[in-house]
């Protein structure tokens, strides 16, 4: 019936390091090709429905933060297309493009680096409103106070600078800044991982309250599986730039299908459930994204690796009504 709210279709994002002079000379002489590109995000397709919370999990270097930046328009994709409300965002211009940028807002990881240290809180939160004249000049202050109150900050803080706040308060300021432009989609890049334990719960509660009040959609990027399981409707697991499994949070955590998801979920420490348990290490290293292994990128570390895994990259296929996985174990069992 309705169009997909937000979609990444076959999106890739490469980073090419600038060749040094020697490299350029060698290339010009035809000795070697150009340096390999780092495939931070490699052919990812992800559909997000209005009002849902999608968790994106993976270990450092898996490309989840890059994916978040492509989704918000901070980075353009190297290949593929981003769709917002059914329209490809690369075709948007002028007012339409600005509308997409504002409606899809980002909350950043580092509460110290994400706020301009030379701007007062009031200026910082109301900046986009003022510059784009989103509301009449005399209403900027009112809107700013409104969102600051919504995130639980004292209005007396309007004239202070970011360095006068704790990490948790700064993260609230970052959330207020995003909410000020009335987005409908928040992309949160590790928004609590830099915070103290007792503050994390406060900020996660704030995310849940805001979502309920405003009916927002979230893409919640994190390496903390406990938090992601808690807040998400669906969860996608990334490994070396690709989504290896996606499904509803409850099901995926209860019965992960991909061997990498299994290893990841097994590794979560918990103060509640398990204590000094038996341990099965995940063998090997995370390979470099500059030269990912052929076939399935996980095969060198996988206990179930088969000959086919070394040659053919498994596509992300549906394995049950609400679950897809990119693993030959599942694609073969399906074809049998």
């Amino acid at each position: 019936m309705s169009e997909t709210f937000f979609e990444l279709r076959d999106v890739s994002r490469y980073f090419r390091s600038k060749p040094s002079l020697t490299q350029r000379i060698v290339t010009a002489l035809g000795r070697t090709g150009p340096p390999p590109a780092l495939r931070a995000v490699d052919d990812v397709t992800l559909r997000i429905r209005a009002g849902e919370v999608v968790g994106l999990v993976g270990e450092s270097g898996c490309g989840k933060s890059t994916l978040a930046r492509v989704a918000t328009g901070i980075l353009p994709p190297s290949a593929g297309e981003v769709f917002y409300k059914g329209r490809p965002v690369t075709e948007l211009t002028g007012k339409d493009r600005l509308n997409y940028l504002l409606k899809v807002q980002m909350v950043f990881q580092d509460p110290y680096a994400s706020l301009n240290p030379r701007m007062k809180v009031g200026q910082l939160v109301g900046e986009a409103l003022r510059v784009h004249k989103l509301v009449p000049k005399n209403e900027v202050g009112e809107r700013t106070r409104g969102v600051l109150k919504e995130v639980g900050l004292d209005l007396g803080y309007m004239d202070r600078y970011p360095h006068q706040f704790s990490g948790g308060q700064r993260q609230r300021i970052g959330i207020a800044r995003a909410l000020a432009v009335e987005p409908d989609f928040l992309v949160c890049d590790e928004p609590v991982s830099a915070l103290d334990v007792s503050i994390q719960a406060q900020v996660i509660n704030l995310f849940m309250d805001v979502r309920e009040r405003r009916g927002l959609t979230y893409l919640f990027v994190s390496h903390d599986l406990g938090v992601v399981r808690h807040i998400s409707d669906r969860v996608a697991i990334m490994y070396l730039g690709r989504i290896v499994e996606i499904g509803t949070a409850a099901e995926l955590f209860a019965k992960p299908a991909h061997p990498y998801s299994q290893a990841l979920i097994r590794a979560i420490p918990s103060a509640v459930t398990r204590r000094r348990r038996a341990f099965t290490p995940l063998k090997g290293e995370l390979p470099s994204a500059l030269s990912p292994p052929p076939g399935c990128a996980f095969h060198p570390r996988c206990e179930h690796a088969m000959p086919i895994c070394r040659e053919v990259r498994p596509p992300l296929v549906q394995i049950s009504p609400d679950r897809s996985a990119a693993c030959h174990l599942h694609s073969t069992s399906e074809s049998v």
């Binding site: 901070i74 493009r97 940028l101 504002l102 980002m106 900046e127 784009h132």
Partner: peptide, 17 residues
């Protein structure tokens, strides 16, 4: 490279600004 510049890009603020 800092995130507040990314935030400014995310708000579609003009380059001059």
């Amino acid at each position: 490279r800092k995130e507040y510049i990314e935030a400014a890009l995310n708000f579609g603020l003009p380059t001059r600004h």
